[in-house]
Amino acid sequence: MSTTKTSTMSMPQAAANPEVGSGTSTGTSPAGSGPGTATNAKPSDQRLFSLKKWNIVAMWSWDVECDTCAICRVQVMDACLRCQTENKQEECVVVWGDCNHSFHNCCMSLWVKQNNRCPLCQQEWMVQRIGK
């Protein structure tokens, strides 16, 4: 591989050091062939240190405008207050309106009976999507 020498300092290469736990290397290296070449090109005993273990931690969150249900004030990714109390966590889904505001479907279905408008923007409520 012609680029091996110039790119040894870049992150993926450094992360996929030949000494990275031999059994898990395929799982941790995004570009499988690159590090493999590096292993063959440089004997491991020339390295100053070797990485024995590599733990990856990931975080995620919803990329939506409002992540808390404005009706029951529980996060939309969790079950609503009602479903939590009635032990129906699995059935609790999220509803998005045309206005892009989201609520728990159960919370919103109670509210639209009274007033068919989004409680946040007062637009007429039209369901865009229901799901998790």
Binding site: A70, I71, C107, W111, N115, Q122
Partner: peptide
């Protein structure tokens, strides 16, 4: 106000 057609009435927010 419970049933209000403008934005000034009651809302669960």
């Amino acid at each position: 106000r419970e049933h209000s057609m403008d934005g000034t009435g009651w809302a669960p927010t």
